[in-house]
Write a protein that binds this DNA or RNA. Structure first.
Length: 710
DNA sequence: AAAAAAG
């Protein structure tokens, strides 16, 4: 059952063999570039985001120039020591001054972990791995190889999550619970980056124009879905909650829905709210989103209705949604004075214990949408009791990449800490020692990636039997072939009655297998207008001669703003980065062949502005947030529209202008056109040769918002 | 193809 879904069934009709593409030529180089990376995701970058939103006026002028940093961006002013040179966190204006101080604790964590690896590795003894046949892999050195429990670097480690952690961290105010609340200010910057942004652009795009083309997308997500049952219940508002009982068997698959019976009773408060819930259940939705015309209208209608509701809820406060004072306070401090639509819609449901699926692009407040209520629920679940040493985690947040996990922790941690709960990151590429140590002491919320989590479960270091809430971020991606099974195995370690929350900017039927096995009568939420595409992004396609790709790329990227280049393979990404560097354009790569230390470091280099060009694989397509990226270049066109949406969503954030240029060979025009249609994006195609003006034009500074929007 | 554990 599990894997029967071939790619085809998962909705990836786009996947086709790529013939002409340049490929193997770089294969060789690839191996050599490996090396480490240090990762630190930019977790926070304070997304200047939502101008409308609170005080995140950070991005005022829209000057993409610098402000990327979390700390600074945020209420910049408040940041102690970030005002002038010599102070921690000070950031010299545009020169790529040492960014180090500006790192968030998360970033430091990644960096430190990475350093630890490097340091250890460099020592002769570090050879634990010993005879690895990959002699050609230079990166061996940064390999952990030895156990890090004894790791010396303890000190610089952010210590994030655990209480007992000695206060060492200079920069971090003691994290004892008592003063917990106080912390807020020092870590505001991170997290809300993604949230503020959206506000403005959202409303901006009128539904009509936007949803006009909406037809194919939704439709295709659920097309195979068996006949829709009755008529879908009226829109959210009047929707009569469907009682559990009459819940039809899950439509899409014969997978026997778990009957309420075999599922441990849910938390008490759950059932109660069920009925007044306006949202539609997954089943309803599934049924609704058919393939045809009527389905189109349905979708459109539904989205619109929700959008309206969203607007109405913007005046509601955090506490009105059911969150406690402490949490509400942190959110406000984080730059989110009031809830965004998706948050207003989902938080009450999450607090009620309901399983939900939510679609909200990065920047729409997705992280807080699940993070805040998750913390609140964990808090309630302990009923005022104490946190015991060695307690098992009560919440789990899964993400597809380490960088994203780090970023999520950057948002959730302060929220959790405000109520005395602790989080810990559990992902690969870094020593297990600290992670195990944290688990041993006891953490409340685990945030990580599948591999290491499963590894620790197998080692009996991680016990998920007490988990009450599980969040699967980028759920559709996590439900794809390579991720699905590990994900399912992990979920099977959680109690059957635990609450499941699935989020993604491109949530579609791909999550069906997970939904069917683990969710119970889930509610589905979407916020109209929230797709990765935004009116502030200028999409362009350059039809080029493959032989000129390298030169064209060099010219496109040789500019002042930050540019993120996507390549299909690690080898090509590495090659391109080297190529650009050789051409005198500082560039670094980000892909899975790099060790975590290098990944973190290279990403940080872009975030800090020390380098303006980052060439990445799709590891950076989802979730990664770096402020000021005003140009995304797709050296290789993506195969899926969802990938296009995620990649392009790295720019044009916070209502800022952004541009996405995709290079394709002539023979790919048709596929590209089809993909853009599915992505609901209008992008003019232009033929271009090396000397053409278009290239310089596209590389140039973007027109002002006004010009762009015409 | 990429990502995700190591070794």
């Amino acid at each position: 059952m599990a894997n029967p879904k071939k790619k085809t069934s998962t909705g990836r009709p786009n996947f086709e063999p790529r013939y002409g593409e340049k490929k193997s030529s770089y294969q060789d180089r690839k191996r050599f570039n490996g090396a480490a990376a240090a990762g630190g995701e930019a977790g926070g970058s304070a997304r200047s985001g939502a101008p409308a939103r609170s005080g995140a006026p950070a991005r005022s002028g829209g000057s993409k120039a610098g402000w990327a940093k979390p700390a600074s961006a945020k209420g910049g002013a408040a940041k102690a020591g970030s005002r002038s040179a010599g102070h921690r966190g000070y950031r010299s204006e545009e020169e790529g001054a040492a960014p180090k101080a500006r790192w968030t604790s998360n970033q430091r964590a990644g960096r430190d972990e990475a350093r630890g690896i490097r340091d250890h590795a460099s020592r002769p003894a570090g050879a634990g791995a010993g005879a690895r046949s990959f002699d050609d892999r230079p990166r061996r050195d940064d390999r952990p190889a030895r156990s890090f429990d004894d790791r010396p670097r303890r000190d610089d480690r952010p210590a994030r999550s655990f209480d007992e952690r000695p206060a060492r961290r200079d920069d971090r105010p003691a994290r004892s619970f008592d003063e917990r609340p106080a912390r807020r200010d020092d870590r505001p910057a991170r997290s809300f980056d993604e949230r503020p942004a959206r506000r403005d652009d959202r409303p901006a795009r009128s539904f009509d124009e936007r949803h006009a083309r909406r037809d194919e997308r939704p439709a295709r997500s659920f097309d195979e879905r068996p006949a829709r049952r009755d008529d879908r219940p009226a829109r959210r508002d009047e929707r009569p909650a469907r009682p559990f009982a009459d819940r039809p068997a899950r439509p899409f698959n014969d997978r026997p829905a778990r009957s309420a019976g075999d599922r441990p009773a849910r938390h008490d408060d759950r059932p109660a709210r069920r009925d007044d819930r306006p949202s539609r259940s997954w089943d309803d939705k599934a049924r609704t989103a058919g393939t045809h015309r009527d389905a189109v209208d349905v979708v459109h209608e539904r989205l619109q209705a929700q959008a309206i509701q969203a607007e109405e809820t913007t005046e509601i406060g955090w506490t009105d949604l059911g969150l406690g004072q402490n949490i509400a306070g942190v959110l406000v401090d984080l730059g989110a004075p009031t809830p965004f639509p998706i948050q207003a819609a989902t938080i009450p449901e999450v607090l009620a214990g309901r399983d939900i699926l939510a679609r909200g692009r990065t920047g729409s407040g997705k992280t807080i949408a699940f993070g805040a209520p998750l913390v609140e629920r964990v808090l309630r679940s302990q009923g005022g009791g104490r946190r015991e040493y060695g307690r098992r985690p009560r919440a789990l947040i899964l993400a597809p990449t380490r960088e994203l996990a780090l970023q999520i922790d950057g948002t959730v941690q302060p929220i959790a800490r405000s109520v005395g709960l602790f989080t810990t990151q559990i992902y690969g590429g870094v020593p297990q020692g600290r992670q195990i140590g944290a688990l041993r002491k006891g953490v409340d919320i685990v945030i990580g990636t599948p591999g290491r989590i499963e590894d620790l479960i197998d080692q009996r270091k991680l016990d998920l039997s007490d988990v009450r809430v599980v969040v699967i971020d980028e759920a559709d991606h996590m439900s794809e072939l390579g991720f699905l099974e590990p994900l399912q195995r992990i979920l099977r370690h959680t109690p059957g009655g635990s609450q499941k929350l699935l989020f993604s900017a491109t949530l579609d039927r791909e999550v069906a297998a997970v939904v069917d096995e683990f969710l119970e009568n889930p509610a589905v939420y979407e916020v109209a207008g929230e797709t990765q595409e935004t009116g502030t992004i200028d999409h362009r396609v350059l039809v080029i001669d493959h032989r000129e790709k390298g030169e064209i790329l060099r010219r496109l990227v040789d500019r002042d703003g930050k540019t993120l280049v996507f390549a299909r393979t690690r080898a090509y990404a590495e090659m391109l980065a080297d190529d650009l560097a050789d051409a005198g354009i500082p560039a670094v790569a980000l892909h899975g062949d790099l060790n975590q230390a290098k990944r973190t470091r290279n990403l940080e280099r872009l975030t800090s502005g020390r380098v303006r060009v980052l060439v990445a694989t799709d590891v950076a397509a989802r979730g990664i947030h770096v402020d000021d990226i005003d140009l995304v270049v797709q050296a290789d066109a993506p195969d899926e529209y969802k990938t296009y949406l995620h990649r392009s969503g790295r720019t044009g954030r916070a209502g800022a202008v952004g541009r996405v240029v995709t290079l394709i060979p002539r023979q790919r025009r048709r596929r590209m056109t089809e993909m853009l249609e599915r992505a609901e994006i209008d992008a003019p195609f232009e033929e271009a040769r090396v000397g053409d003006d278009v290239i310089d034009e596209l590389a140039g500074t973007l027109p002002t918002d006004a010009e762009l929007t015409r």
